[in-house]
Each structure stands twice: as structure tokens, then as C-alpha cells.
């Protein structure tokens, strides 16, 4: 129930509108997780150091932990839950094919970062991958497989697109 003191913020997440009662400064991360109940986006550091909270805002990768909800109003927010309806995005397919995940906690952010990279650069070089993925920490050490899987995802994506 909303009262006179409430802030109403409208967010569009994965194509759906959500009206939430949130302080405008609340990081989008907590709005997504605690209020909209989309917990695929993870908390890892709160200071844009680890990338676990990577989402897409208007197609660009962003760190939800340092994005106030007020800054996300009027944008198209995409989270891991909205990347594909059935884990068939080329990045997800490549991750499954190469058994990238271990504990899995950072992988929502890794997958979202990789998906954003391939939107901008369909054929990333090693250096491109290092640069784009270096902000995403994985403590299980899945980095060697992430490198390989980004390349595999690029192949799958190119193969799946009309020439």
C-alpha cells in the first residue's frame, strides 16, 4: 500500500513495467533483488569493482550496484532473467557447452558482460575479451573457460544471424 510518504518509481525491466516504492538513491541492484524479486543479478562488492551485478541499460552494460534507481527511470533495463526465455542466448549456450560455471555466483554478470560485448563486437580478439571482461571477478577461476566461451558464443551468434 502506498502512502503519502512513498516514492513511486517506475522501472521497465525485461519489458515489464514495475512501480516500486524506493528512495531515488537506492541502487538499482537492491531494487531489482529486494523489491522486484529478480535475484539473478548478484551483489558482490557494492562499488563497481566485481561486475557480479552487471545488467544492460538501453543495451549498454552497467553496474546495478552504483546505479541509483532514479537514473534508470525511462530506460530499458535487461537482467539475466530477460536475456533469453530458455537459456538459449549464444552466450548461455556457449557457457553450457564449455562447462564454464563452477559456484556460479558471478556468472550472471559474466554472461551479461559477454552478451553486451558481442552486441558491440561480433568478432572480439583476445585483447577485446580481456578488456571487456576484466571488470568481472570470478573467485572460482573460470577465466580460461570464459575466454574460450566468449569466442564460441561469437561463432554461435554469427552462425545464428542471417547473412
Amino acid at each position: 500500500m502506498l502512502t503519502g510518504r512513498d516514492y513511486v518509481i517506475s522501472l521497465t525491466v525485461n519489458g515489464e513495467r514495475h512501480d516500486i516504492d524506493a528512495d531515488p538513491e537506492m541502487p538499482l541492484l537492491w531494487a531489482l533483488r529486494d523489491l522486484i524479486k529478480l535475484t539473478g543479478t548478484k551483489y558482490g562488492c557494492g562499488i563497481a569493482q566485481c561486475g557480479a551485478c552487471t545488467i544492460h541499460i538501453d543495451g549498454q552494460p552497467a553496474r546495478a550496484c552504483v546505479t541509483p534507481v532514479s537514473a534508470a527511470v525511462g530506460t530499458e533495463i535487461r537482467t539475466i532473467e530477460g536475456l533469453s526465455p530458455d537459456a538459449t542466448h549464444p552466450v548461455q549456450q556457449a557457457w553450457i557447452e564449455l562447462d564454464v560455471v563452477q559456484c556460479g555466483y558471478c556468472q550472471s554478470g559474466q554472461v551479461m558482460a559477454a552478451a553486451a560485448l558481442l552486441e558491440q563486437n561480433p568478432s572480439p580478439t583476445d585483447a577485446d575479451i580481456d578488456a571487456a571482461m576484466n571488470g568481472n571477478i570470478c573467485r572460482c577461476g573460470t577465466y580460461p573457460r570464459i575466454r574460450a566461451a566468449v569466442k564460441r558464443a561469437a561463432e554461435l551468434k554469427r552462425a545464428g544471424e542471417p547473412a
Binding site: E81, I96, Y105
Partner: peptide, 21 residues
Amino acid sequence: QRRLDSRIKVNGEAQFGIDVD
């Protein structure tokens, strides 16, 4: 053998302790 928990770890479905609601 491919890991049985990959799919739910690449689509946000896997529930960690911090995700409990």
C-alpha cells in the same frame, strides 16, 4: 560429463543463500 547445474547458473535461476526470499 557436462555439469548438471550449468543451465540454472547461466539464466539466474540458481538460488544461493543470499537469494532466499
